[in-house]
């Protein structure tokens, strides 16, 4: 059997501090190449779950495996490196280092991930991705802060996809865009994710996007969240 791109089992986690948000996730998997939309209301713990999956925070108990690697077996430093190697991350907005060029932004994850760097074709691949994502020619040398929000999000997609990591994690990547740009953005992103053969886990509170995905998951169905009233 193929290793799933992502699998969680019996995971529990709590933010530090008294009365912090805590969650538990008995089981959740994303198969290789699968595209999953995770739906949930604000504050339901979507971003927290993504932090766990990316290994930025460590689960208190249970297993989180990405592409066959159990994160709990890695040290914090190894987890950081592994994230660089295996996961492409796209945020809701402010994805890029504003002062750096588009090219530097796209190539940034490669400087922490030697294997991914070997797989990638450096600037050539970055340029190809930009073209495929319908970004204008000559954008590579521009400073990221000069770009429109939609362009910035597409550069973030290129950055996540460079070196074709097995898992792409996106936290509401299109919610900062207006409806028509959103459509086009998602089209382009899907095409490139498919091209790279990566799995996609995208978080949103917008159920209308569901049609494009292989599977739609309500977060309440996989998570038990506890939030002590503030």
């Amino acid at each position: 059997m193929e290793k799933p791109a992502l699998s969680l089992s019996d995971v529990t986690f709590a933010w530090p501090g008294k009365g912090g948000f805590s969650l538990s996730c008995p089981a959740f998997t994303v198969a290789q190449g699968e595209r999953v939309l995770l739906l949930g209301a604000s504050g339901s713990g979507k971003s927290t779950l993504l932090s766990l999956i990316c290994g930025i925070v460590a689960a208190e108990s249970g297993q989180v495996s990405v592409a066959g690697t159990e994160l709990g077996s890695l040290s914090a430093g190894q987890r950081d490196r592994f994230r660089g190697e295996a996961i492409g991350v796209i945020f809701q907005q402010f994805n890029l280092l504003p002062y750096a060029s588009v090219a530097d932004n796209i190539l940034l994850p490669l400087s922490f991930a030697p294997k991914r760097r070997d797989r990638a074709e450096g600037a050539m691949e970055a340029e190809a991705l930009c073209r495929a994502l319908d970004l204008p020619d000559g954008i590579m040398d521009q400073r990221a802060e000069r770009l429109s929000v939609g362009q910035q999000q597409r550069v973030a997609v290129a950055r996540a996809l460079i070196g074709a990591p097995p898992l792409i994690v996106a936290d509401e990547p299109a919610s900062a865009l207006d409806a028509s740009t959103q459509e086009r953005f998602l089209d382009l992103m899907f095409a490139q994710v498919a091209q790279a053969g990566s799995s996609l886990l995208m978080v949103s509170h917008d159920a209308r996007l569901g049609a494009r995905f292989d599977r739609v998951v309500e977060i309440d169905n996989i998570l038990q969240a506890q939030k002590v009233a503030v």
Partner: peptide, 16 residues
């Protein structure tokens, strides 16, 4: 802080 989060997401260690 935003910038730091980006570095972290890209695989940078806190030490970096």
């Amino acid at each position: 802080r935003r910038e730091m989060a980006i570095w972290r997401a890209m695989g940078a260690r806190p030490r970096t």
